[in-house]
Design a protein around this nucleic acid. Structure first.
Lengths: 240, 240
DNA sequence: AAGTGGTCTAGACCACGCG
DNA sequence: GCGTGGTCTAGACCACTTC
């Protein structure tokens, strides 16, 4: 499917060409994109047409434009532009509390029926870790990393560095989907999060995928419901 | 605060002028906006400059443009562009289940310390209702409507029509903020939602405000955690 | 047929930021 | 200085839709 191309305008073609080079990883974050005049010559069109394409890409956040230095591929700053969740560390610091992180476990296993998001047999890295705000437990993270896509993760030590922070540096532009739900804490999670057994928890599951729809990583974040909320603000026209 | 306007470009001025007329309710949904050529004469500029402003407004979804018939103020189709929650009815229908609605209670009271979002003394309408998907309870809605802003609500019968569906027709463009959290069901809510007492529930609180930051309505939606999730999808560049 | 939006042009000038 | 992006122009042609 996905045959939506009838009479493509020139600026749409330019936009699509550049976007696919970025999203495929061919042009990595920091890569210099030709100037408007150069692209105008390449496509045999005026600078205004090129400008229209590049301006829209900049508004989307895929590229960063500066005078004199030119246009470069931007580096993703958040795991989700929808919910604006950059990292748990910055969430905690935004509350004015000191941030601390502890790795609970880390092991390598192959994908099977219990991990339907990953193709069977793929090498996976399973991580469990706790994030603290001040002295209180803030969030329990259960992370799976697809080593077929990010083999470098094998040789990284996640004792000091949370996997989310490392991954956001590694993986170029990618898509993410979220599902938020509510659960009561079982005995184990209650002990870890320092809440009574049966307390309500907010669970956020995030899956990040490559343009080819291969899951790069899945994160399951469990927050004590009484201590955490997800906020979203909307003023008309924030999506333009 | 909010003095960020130093050297405003002309297209930004045009865009802002039109946006504020829409968002203030001066131009209601359906209102015809002058054509590009007319606006070009009004502002003493070329059509391209007007086009840049109007194109951006159309991308934001505030206006709808059609050839020959011209440009009109769009009508909001969702209570939140961020979470894409149009109405509970369409949520249920999207699951392929028949939708049913029942009003539990409806009473008028004045704002006091228990309703900090509304200025003290304001006339408020309190509604409690249940939404069903098939035969199962889907969501408990606790709604407060500010009658100072929407006095028409006094004479509306919410027995058959959910308040959210009615409000979205009434109120023009407005801003909404969301807070999502988790709670366990107390005895009353458990009975209404047909879940065991102590079950985890997802609670979404939404406040819709006028441009002057007066709260029009507040909605507290309680979903059985096991039966409902909030989904958000993100592909790079959806916000451009 | 007429008027609308949509794209595109081949110029222009300016502001910025690096050398 | 000089090259970059950013805006703006005064035209143009086309597609579409209603009349």
């Amino acid at each position: 499917m996905e045959i939506t191309h009838p009479p493509l305008f020139l600026y749409e073609r330019i936009l699509g060409d550049i976007e696919s080079r970025i999203v495929s990883g061919q042009w990595l974050p920091g890569h210099a994109i030709p100037s408007e005049t150069e692209l105008g010559k390449t496509y045999g069109c005026s600078r205004m047409t090129v400008n229209k394409a590049l301006t829209q890409l900049a508004r989307k956040g895929l590229i960063e434009r500066r005078r004199r230095t030119g246009t470069r591929v931007a580096r993703p700053r958040t795991e989700s532009a929808v919910l604006d969740v950059s990292s748990i560390e910055s969430e905690v610091l935004a509350l004015g509390l000191p941030y601390r992180y502890r790795l609970l476990s880390c092991q390598q296993k192959s994908a099977d029926a219990s991990t339907p998001s990953f193709s069977t047999g793929a090498a996976l890295l399973f991580l469990r870790s706790l994030h603290f705000a001040g002295n209180a437990a803030f969030c329990l993270e259960q992370r799976i990393i697809n080593l077929e896509v990010v083999p470098e993760a094998k040789s990284i030590c996640f004792d000091a560095q949370p996997p989310g922070a490392w991954l956001i540096q590694q993986v170029p532009w990618s898509a993410a989907s979220h599902v938020i739900s509510a659960e009561v804490a079982d005995e184990e999670n209650a002990a870890l999060l320092e809440v009574p057994e049966g307390a309500a928890c907010l669970v956020m599951c995030r899956e990040t995928t490559t343009p080819e729809s291969v899951v790069i990583t899945s994160a399951r974040l469990t927050y004590p419901g009484a201590r955490h909320t997800v906020r979203a603000k909307f003023t008309p026209g924030n999506s333009g």
